[in-house]
């Protein structure tokens, strides 16, 4: 019968018409009075009495709350997380970058109290204006010094600000992604809630105790030299 297929099709659209939307408002979501009160941590009545200005705004539909997008912890984003203390300036990341956007200049002469001499980084620039976030540099890093970040909202108006220098990387928040870092997944590290402050916690091995370190790097070394 002609029209039967059309009717069945319209039933599908009708069912989807009452479905809750899959799209979300970003970066801010409009909320009404109840939503605004919930955001402020008050019950709606108290919100209405206590903050009448905000309440009128919310009733008029002008109140907004920021939205957080659901992301996988393995998300390859900017900005990069870099632990300078873990880096030995081997330049593996610069070699494996398909675009050649990592610049490294190193000089010998860094003296670590426990680990002896190593190379010191002078320049470590990542030009994320040309980066495609493939993650090959992170995969190449043998000492887990470089990690992908989890954010994606660091847009700027100036191109030069897209070059991540050593100072920028050191000052950035350490929220590493678990891309190619199985140790974070084993420890159930959540980059959206926690940060890594100590560079020892970013490694793939457990942190040795201070006693072990002293024994390994100070006591044995001195005895061997004698």
């Amino acid at each position: 019968m002609i029209g039967l297929g059309l009717t069945r099709g319209f039933l599908v659209t009708l069912r989807n018409f009452v479905r809750s939307p899959v799209t979300i408002q970003y970066p801010d979501r409009h909320v009404g009075l109840f939503g605004a009160a919930k955001e402020a941590g008050m019950n709606p009545f108290r919100f209405l009495v206590g903050r009448p200005g905000d309440s009128i705004k919310a009733i008029a539909g002008l109140a907004t709350v920021p939205v957080k997008l659901e992301q996988s912890p393995r998300f390859r984003g900017n900005e990069f997380v870099f632990f300078e203390d873990r880096c030995t300036a081997c330049a593996s990341c610069a070699k494996y970058c398909p675009l050649g956007i990592i610049e490294i200049v190193s000089v010998p002469g860094k003296i670590d109290a426990l680990e002896g001499e190593s190379y010191k980084l002078e320049v470590f620039d990542i030009d994320i204006g040309r980066c495609m976030f493939c993650g090959l540099c992170v995969e190449a890093c043998p000492y887990d010094a470089l990690h992908m970040g989890t954010g994606f909202e660091q847009s700027t108006y100036v191109r030069d600000e897209l070059i991540l220098t050593l100072d920028v990387l050191n000052a950035a928040e350490k929220k590493p992604s678990s891309f190619y870092r199985p140790q974070f997944e084993e420890n159930a590290f959540d980059p959206f809630a926690e940060t890594i402050e100590n560079h020892y916690d970013a490694g793939r091995h457990e942190r040795p105790s201070d006693e072990d370190m002293k024994k390994r790097w100070v006591d044995e070394r001195w005895t061997n030299d004698d």
Partner: peptide, 18 residues
């Protein structure tokens, strides 16, 4: 979109998977 979310879980990217 849901399939791309699965890819994000697997490899951290949605389109340029590598």
């Amino acid at each position: 979109e849901n399939i791309l979310d699965l890819f994000e879980m697997l490899c951290g990217a949605r389109i340029t998977t590598s």
